[in-house]
Simulated scan of single mutants.
Amino acid sequence: MPDSPADHHQARRNPRTARLHRRTALVTGAAAGIGLAVADRFRAEGARVAYADRDAAGAETAAAATGGRPVHMDVSDEASVVAGYAGLAADGWIPDVVVVNAGVQLFGHDAEVAELDLDVWRRTHDVNLTGAFLTVKHAVRGMLRIGGGSIILSGSPTGVRGEGAEFTAYASSKAGMHGLGRTVAAAYADRGIRVNTVIPPYTETGLVSAITGDPAARAVIVGRIPMRRAGTTADLEGVYVFLAGEESAFATGGAFAVDGGMTSL
């Protein structure tokens, strides 16, 4: 389905904000935080954007602000993921850009491995890793139909190094996501599907409110960032745009750290 006349007009009027013109993107976890910021930036760059979230009301509100499309999607439930993609496809929206961003971090419940409850492990992995698998699985099926696309995973420093010693479930789920990205990238590179992972910094969104509300805990984390400040969603938008567009056409299987140097030490 072609973009609306309004989209064409916006792209012509401000060509500097048209890097994703004619792209169709789906962003999970788009009702808040990094997902919302990336989805909004994609809209500003000329893409059609599906704001997917299990918070249906939040997705509606977020999408309405930019003229995007809300999608109610629980990434831990395959039937919900299938229905979300199918609803888009029925209207000619087959995403050629998918941002796998939905996630949970169960502060107060996640713990060192000897103290970790199996239920917390399962709840975390159901969303963060199984959810990533299901989102990627059905993204790839759609992209194979249209000749390719770009999948971007939101990783974590905890999945790269020992930043999450007290968050066994979260850190291991993100490490699994990094591995998933590399595996899928290798499997589909010859069919036009690119898969890359963004490693964000400690970013002050609603996901980490337990830390932002604890000055001592926040100081410890920020102290491990060479740039000596927390990240913001504005720090991250650009790399997602780059990986979504043609400027990164030869990039796949990569991990792009935008973390103030946190994983460089």
Rank of each mutant, 00 (worst) to 15 (best):
T263K: 05
T233K: 00
P226A: 04
F250L: 10
A186T: 10
V184W: 02
L207E: 03
A255H: 12
T197L: 12
F242Q: 11
T263M: 06
A255F: 12
T197E: 13
G192D: 08
L236H: 07
T233A: 01
L236N: 08
R182A: 15
Y202K: 01
I211D: 00
L236D: 09
T263A: 07
S209D: 12
A185D: 10
F242W: 15
A230S: 15
L207S: 02
L180G: 08
R191N: 11
I225A: 02
V184I: 14
R228H: 11
A189D: 13
P200N: 07
A257E: 06
G254D: 04
G206C: 02
D190S: 12
L180P: 04
V184E: 02
G223W: 00
A257Y: 06
G260T: 05
R191C: 09
E247K: 09
G181S: 05
A219E: 15
E237M: 09
P200C: 10
R229A: 03
A244F: 10
A217L: 13
I221L: 15
A210L: 03
Y188M: 06
A255W: 11
L207Q: 06
A251S: 09
I193F: 02
T197V: 15
Y202Q: 07
V239K: 02
G231E: 09
Y188N: 13
I221A: 05
R228G: 04
M227K: 04
M262G: 00
I225T: 15
V195I: 13
N196V: 08
G223M: 02
T212F: 00
M262P: 01
S248D: 11
A244G: 12
V222Y: 00
A255V: 13
L180Y: 07
T183L: 14
P201V: 03
E204D: 05
F242P: 06
G213K: 00
G254A: 14
I199S: 13
L207W: 04
V220G: 01
G206S: 09
V222M: 00
N196W: 09
A257M: 06
F250V: 05
T205I: 06
Y240H: 12
S248W: 10
V258H: 03
G261P: 11
G206K: 07
R182T: 14
P201A: 15
E204C: 06
P226Q: 04
D235M: 08
R228I: 00
V195W: 11
T212K: 01
A249L: 05
V198P: 13
G245A: 12
R182Y: 08
P215K: 03
I221Y: 06
T233W: 02
P215M: 02
P200F: 08
R224M: 12
A249V: 03
V222W: 01
F256P: 01
G213E: 01
